Simulated scan of single mutants.
Amino acid sequence: MKYVSAYMLAQIGGKKAPTHDDIHKILEGGGLEYNEESAKRVVKLLSGKSLADLIADGSKHLVAVSGGGGGAAAAPSAAAPAAAAEAPKDEGKKKKEEAKEESDDDMGFGLFD
């Protein structure tokens, strides 16, 4: 996918027929790994296609892939909500205790005293 995106970015940048070197420069600029074989394959498959053609072809595939919102999550057991309700209370106490300890680190000198 990153090779197709780099190819399309090269076209947006003014290259009518991007090469694998163009893809390499774009991916390298973004700090991404580069595989020359993959880049050459993308150039071979997409050569001669305009950006508009690529977007039109790609949108057909997106419709076929979309699957909606997914299924509902499974209901938790009765013990799980009780355990989950207890955890935040304990964490709140710990955070308050830690805050008190941190305030002692100023050695008696307050910013606004």
Rank of each mutant, 00 (worst) to 15 (best):
A82K: 15
K49T: 01
I55F: 04
V43S: 06
T19M: 01
D90Y: 09
K25N: 09
M8C: 14
M1N: 14
A79P: 10
L51A: 07
G67T: 02
P88T: 11
D22S: 06
Q11I: 02
L62W: 08
G29K: 07
S66R: 10
D57T: 04
A56S: 05
V43D: 09
V42Q: 08
G48C: 01
A80C: 12
G48W: 02
S77C: 06
L54Q: 05
P76S: 01
K100F: 06
G68I: 01
S50C: 01
A72T: 05
A64F: 00
I55N: 02
E97L: 13
H20F: 12
D21F: 05
A99W: 08
V43H: 15
K40H: 01
S103A: 13
R41A: 02
S5T: 10
G71A: 08
P81M: 05
Y7P: 06
L54P: 03
E91D: 11
P88E: 06
H20S: 11
L51V: 09
V43W: 09
E98T: 07
V63W: 04
L46C: 13
A39I: 02
L45E: 15
E97G: 14
G68Q: 03
K96I: 03
E28Y: 10
F109Y: 13
E102F: 05
M8N: 12
Y34K: 05
V65S: 11
E101G: 07
E102K: 15
E102S: 11
I12A: 13
A72M: 10
K44G: 03
H24G: 00
L45N: 14
I23Y: 13
L45D: 14
E91H: 15
M107T: 10
E28F: 08
L27G: 04
A84Y: 11
G13A: 06
